[in-house]
Design a protein around this nucleic acid. Structure first.
Lengths: 108, 108
DNA sequence: GTGCATACTTGCCGATAGGTGGGTATGCCG
DNA sequence: CGGCATACCCACCTATCGGCAAGTATGCAC
C-alpha cells in the first residue's frame, strides 16, 4: 500500500508497463493532469523503492527513460485484478461518487 | 484506488472478510493503532461506497456489526494478489524503508 | 543574440488526512 | 449514588500531499 501510495503512481506503473521504457516527456503527456514536480517526485520514489529503473543517456538535450524492474513488473501484475475490479464496477462506484458530489455542493 | 484510499481501509476489509460480521469493538482491538475517529470515519466511507453493511441491533449497551456486501467481497478478492505481493516482497521493500528511515533521522 | 527543447529543481501555499482529548446516551452492577 | 461498558461525535491541531509558478544547464537552429 505504501509503495503505491501517491496519486499518480498506479498510473505511472500502468503506462510504463504498457509501453516499455518510457521517456519522461511521454509520461508527462500521457498523464496530462500531473504537475512536473509531483511526477518527478513519484518517479524518484518508485525508483528508490526499486520498482522502476531510471536510465540517463547523458545526452544533450537530456534524454532519460524509465522502465520497470522485475519487482516493478510483479507489482504491476498484482495490480491487474484491482484494475479489473475498478473497470467492472465503475458504474456502481461512480454513481455513489456522483451522489456524494451533488450532496456536497448542495451542502456547502 | 479512491475506494481503498485511507490508511486503514484495506485492513478493515481484510478483518471483516476474514471474520464475517465484525463488531466495532473487535475491529478497534484488532487494529490497535487506529483512533476511534478515523476508524468510524473510514467505516462510514466504506458503507457509503457500498462495500460494507452496518447492522445496528438497537440494543443497550449498543451493539453494531459490520459485514461485507457482495461488492465488498469482490473488492477483497481483487486485493488478494496485492496482499500476496506485499507478503512475498516484504523483505526487499522493508529493507528500502529501513534505509530511508536511517537516512532521514541522520539528516534531520 | 534570441528562442526552443529537454529534464529537472525550488519555493510557496491551500487542502486534507489522520491523530488527540474530550463528550454523549443508556442501562447494569454494586 | 458512582463507576463501567458500548458505539459513537466534536473541536482542534499538525504533517503531509499535491498543485502552481518560476528558474537551471546545455546545445542547436535561426
Amino acid at each position: 500500500m505504501r509503495v503505491v501510495a501517491g496519486k499518480w503512481k498506479p498510473l505511472i506503473l500502468y503506462f510504463v508497463a504498457q509501453g516499455g521504457p518510457t521517456r519522461y516527456g511521454e509520461l508527462r503527456r500521457a498523464i496530462r493532469d500531473v504537475s512536473d514536480k509531483v511526477l518527478i517526485q513519484q518517479l524518484k520514489e518508485l525508483e528508490a523503492d526499486g520498482l522502476v529503473k531510471r536510465t540517463d543517456y547523458k545526452e544533450v538535450p537530456p534524454r532519460v527513460d524509465y522502465s520497470l524492474t522485475p519487482l516493478g513488473h510483479s507489482l504491476a501484475q498484482a495490480l491487474v485484478p484491482l484494475c479489473t475490479w475498478g473497470t467492472e464496477h465503475m458504474a456502481e462506484v461512480s454513481q455513489v461518487f456522483a451522489e456524494r458530489a451533488t450532496w456536497n455542493t448542495r451542502r456547502r
